[in-house]
């Protein structure tokens, strides 16, 4: 019983910059047998409330429960400029009784968290330093239909016998730019449905990428990729502080809006 999960490493403090927060799990560790459904545990800390918080302060933990006892650990943003890192302890303390014959083994009951000064925001992430027109996406449809190959036909039937390609070029100087593949990207397994097989599985993707090339462009980067698609494809490019751009390919041609 104790701290577990992505952010707990025994004997090693979790480092949080002021303003950062993570979920830390408190869980039953090992074995399936357990004498009761759940036990409340209290989370106590020696950290000042204006430095570090852990919420909620009480959690219930039991067997076979995934992430039952998660707490949000947050380093409070209070401008630690020039202050040395400070390390605090979080501790799990049982509040409820255990069934007769059982004892708490709190081998993972303590966790250290070191609070450090937040790093300054890089200049190119600051909105005033960034110009939205510097983010561009250019989809260019290429040639005509290409043979999808035997394997694709064996899975999808004649629906996907041919595919089309577009070269998509993305240019941006903003490090938080994100590209999403939106719209339908799945195709039914027609033959599976006809054969009455389980609908559990959904085939995807309906398209695929190849020939990826990434290069720096002096303050930004350029990502080129060849996108193979069938009926249509829609990509959404989002950059903080800017209008989203959409690249759409359909009917053998591509456009941006």
């Amino acid at each position: 019983m104790g701290f577990t999960g992505l952010y707990f490493i025994p004997g090693q403090p979790l480092v949080l910059a002021e303003g950062q927060s993570v979920f830390v799990d408190i869980n039953w560790v090992g074995g399936d047998s357990f004498p009761q459904d759940a036990i409340p545990y209290r989370i106590v800390s020696d950290a000042p409330a204006d430095e570090l918080s852990a919420t909620p302060s009480t959690v219930e933990v039991g067997p076979r429960v995934s992430n039952a006892g998660a707490v949000l650990v947050r380093a409070i943003a209070d401008d630690r400029a020039d202050e040395a890192p400070a390390t605090y302890t979080l501790e799990v303390q049982p509040e409820g009784p255990l069934a007769e014959g059982w004892a708490h083994d709190l081998a993972r009951a303590k966790m250290e968290v070191t609070v450090v000064e937040a790093e300054p925001t890089p200049p190119d992430e600051q909105s005033q330093a960034y110009s939205c027109p510097e983010t561009r996406i250019q989809p260019l449809a290429e040639g005509g239909p290409r043979d999808g190959g035997d394997w694709m036909r064996s899975v999808h039937g004649d629906d996907l016998a041919d595919y089309l390609t577009s070269t998509v070029t993305l240019q941006t100087a903003h490090p938080r730019t994100a590209l999403s593949l939106v719209g339908p990207y799945r195709r039914p397994f027609a033959h599976r449905e006809m054969e009455g097989e389980s609908p559990l599985y959904r085939p995807y993707p309906f398209g695929f990428l190849f020939d990826l090339a990434l290069r720096e462009t002096g303050g930004g980067f350029e990502q080129v990729m060849t996108f193979a698609w069938f009926d249509d494809v829609r990509l959404r490019l989002e950059t903080p502080g800017c209008d989203a751009l959409e690249a759409i390919c359909e009917d053998g041609a591509c456009r941006v809006r």
């Binding site: 730019t177 590209l179 999403s180 397994f189 599976r192 085939p203």
Partner: peptide
Amino acid sequence: VPAGKAFSTADVATPDMNHTMIWP
């Protein structure tokens, strides 16, 4: 997860989400 000869998503395994790319 694999399903037959194709790659598929399993309802129990992962949420329905659109693919997203970022460049840190």
